[in-house]
């Protein structure tokens, strides 16, 4: 076996058992910048090209698979009618308020649970159970309790993100080196100083990262909420488009949702870079 392999690849025969050099399959190492950019471009251009190719070949009914140009036109029409901006703003508003409230509550609770074993023992069991209850299953209750306007949608986003934020922040606190806390005590630090001047600044990058990851869940939930009961919003627009068999509108809204999520992700990365430059490699 070995002699066959080395005979067919004489260049590598010097080191039969050695690790062969590679560019593409490097593990946890950088690849050349131009390869990186090429792959990034391929990641966007190829799916777009396949979509365009399949839709222009006419093998799929354009009613089911509209071409990129049709979808672009649909987006422009939605924009011209004022729906696109209005729906986007409405969805952003719901996500913004719901997620802001969840962030406001989850950061201090997560830090407290990570810091104090007592608080963790008090809250972890109940959060561990509640977080496995799917947030959309709360919708009927929320509609009964809070009516059909904004409050149930905001509450849904809150419920769907607050527990994951808390648990991720709690875990981040547990990763603070014990010696960093002990050093603080030997410098004369009190417990409240350790909490506010060491633990809190240490986990801010992790808090921002937890928010960035869990933001995706709040966009899932806003669309779910709008599919069920709303007058406007991107989810509502998708639901309306379905009733009128406007697949081009559905595609347009999906792409807008993807782009918004991508921009928010970049925003959080940028926030991390300017607020905690020490935490960036």
């Amino acid at each position: 076996m070995t002699s066959d392999a080395s005979a067919s690849t004489p260049k590598n025969s010097q080191q039969p058992g050695g690790l062969k050099p590679t560019i593409f399959w490097r593990i946890a190492e950088d690849i050349p910048a131009n390869l990186k950019w090429a792959l990034t471009a391929i990641s966007i251009v190829v799916p777009l090209g396949i979509w365009w190719g399949v839709s222009s070949l006419g093998i799929v009914n354009p009613k089911f698979l509209p071409s990129p140009m049709t979808v672009g036109q649909a987006a422009l029409d939605l924009h011209a009618d004022g729906f696109l901006v209005q729906d986007t703003l409405m969805s952003c508003f719901r996500v913004g308020v719901g997620f802001f409230l969840a962030a406001l509550i989850s950061a201090p609770i997560g830090v407290a649970m990570g810091t104090f074993t007592s608080i963790r023992s008090l809250l972890e069991p109940i959060i561990g159970i509640v977080r496995y209850m799917p947030a959309p299953a709360f919708i009927p209750l929320l509609l009964i309790y809070l009516g059909v306007e904004e409050p149930p949608k905001i509450a849904l986003i809150f419920i769907g993100t607050v527990f994951f934020n808390v648990l991720m922040i709690m875990d981040a606190v547990k990763f603070i080196p014990q010696e960093l806390l002990e050093t603080t005590y030997t410098l004369g630090g009190q417990r409240h100083q350790v909490l506010f001047q060491v633990i809190t600044p240490y986990v801010i990058p992790n808090i921002l990262d937890a928010f960035r990851v869990n933001m995706a869940a709040s966009w899932n939930l806003v669309v779910v909420a709008e599919l069920i009961a709303a007058d406007e919003g991107l989810g509502k627009r998708i639901s309306l488009a379905q009733q009128f068999f406007r697949t081009d509108d559905i595609f347009a809204c999906l792409i807008v949702l993807g782009l918004i999520g991508f921009c928010i992700d970049l925003l959080f990365r940028w926030l991390l870079r300017i607020s905690c430059p020490w935490a960036i490699d």
Binding site: T183, T186, P201
Partner: peptide, 19 residues
């Protein structure tokens, strides 16, 4: 009876505040 600034401590791992 507990840690205090009258006994300074230096650890092997430096334990500096990275921020």
């Amino acid at each position: 009876i507990g840690p205090g600034a009258d006994r300074g401590m230096v650890f092997q791992s430096y334990s500096l505040y990275p921020w």
